[in-house]
Design a protein around this nucleic acid. Structure first.
Lengths: 189, 189
DNA sequence: TGCCAACCGGAGGCTACCTCCGTATTGTTG
DNA sequence: CAACAATACGGAGGTAGCCTCCGGTTGGCA
């Protein structure tokens, strides 16, 4: 636990507030995501905003503390099961615990996903446009006999994406990689 | 283009401001990510904040417009190449264009990644803790002869993760899935 | 030129961020 | 148990961003 500075133990009131803040932060982050209002967390913990900032100088510090606490809980559950449950049952129970935790975490992002999905027609439209554009360049190369006839526009896009990933760390090799790709696109003689 | 309402064409000043906003938004989002200040975008475009909100009622609307514009540019490049460059060269050039765009986009997130990496010791520590915890439950099951001896703690964690993914849409099947997993963990007779 | 619909700008009310310092609480020592 | 550091608290206050609303301005058309 990081409720001690590594030196003297925290004063009683300090420790109490630290724990309240952590508990409220956990709830708020769950409800509103990583952008939850720090002032509201302090408010709900019945604590001044200054106190929050003293214990957690940074939003990231608070997020880390919450994360760390959740991990501690999962670990504690394992040790508890190892002592109280029959071996196989214990293992199964713990796997279930972890799985549920992961589900809950993933659920969080779905609020954001819903917003994006709502507007996804834009993305669909854009994708269609780009495929059409890819089609014109590709068709022309195919008609000139320099590209395999079975290539589809989406293949071109995927290759471009692959190239961007491959050449990210070594931009000086981009040209070489591109030449490999272009070789691969040519019809077999 | 969405610079028309689908009805009458925009007034000259409206169109001018729309385009300035779009240009500045592109720069700001590139520099500061999706959380860039809308007021600063308006300021840099030399336009009142009200004007920004009239054209783009929502942060998402502005982001979508920027995205759409970038896609239009990529598509335009394809049509241009199809008319001016030899077929094969045109195809290669376009693949390169797309690849570079994807690289630039990916570079954006690295600012955020740097922050996270900086604090990644926390995550490493947590991961170690959890593996240790997994170890205790697993070892016990192995000693009791109900789990294969070649299982490692990380395998347990991965299975738990897989279970969470698999059971997300059908929580009622979780128990059944778990029983499959547990069967798989048992030593071969 | 004159008119009106379309458009502009930014003040204003709100919330959140983060800092700073006077005040209050704790626990330790005589 | 009293008194005093050391420690911790709280929230005012200055800044900035969000978004709305409306009096004033401008462009385009007759």
């Amino acid at each position: 636990m990081s409720t001690t500075t590594g030196q003297r133990p925290m004063r009683a009131d300090a420790r109490r507030n630290y724990e309240r803040l952590l508990a409220e932060a956990k709830v708020s982050f769950r409800e509103h995501g990583a952008d939850a209002s720090l002032e509201e967390i302090a408010r709900r913990a019945g604590v001044g905003i200054g106190t929050l900032y003293r214990h957690f100088p940074t939003r990231l510090a608070l997020q880390e503390a919450v994360y760390r606490d959740e991990m501690d809980q999962l670990a504690a559950k394992a040790y508890e099961l190892a002592e109280t449950a029959p071996p196989e049952e214990g293992l199964a129970a713990w796997i279930l615990t972890i799985s549920e935790y992961a589900c809950r975490k993933r659920g969080l992002t779905q609020t954001l996903k819903a917003v994006i999905d709502l507007h996804s027609e834009t993305f669909i439209r854009c994708h269609e446009d780009i495929e059409r554009a890819a089609g014109t360049v590709l068709t022309r190369a195919q008609e000139a006999g320099t590209a395999r006839p079975d290539l589809r526009p989406r293949d071109v896009l995927r290759l471009a994406h692959a190239l961007s990933v491959a050449s990210e760390r070594a931009p000086e090799d981009t040209e070489l990689l591109l030449s490999f790709i272009m070789d691969g696109l040519r019809p077999r003689p």
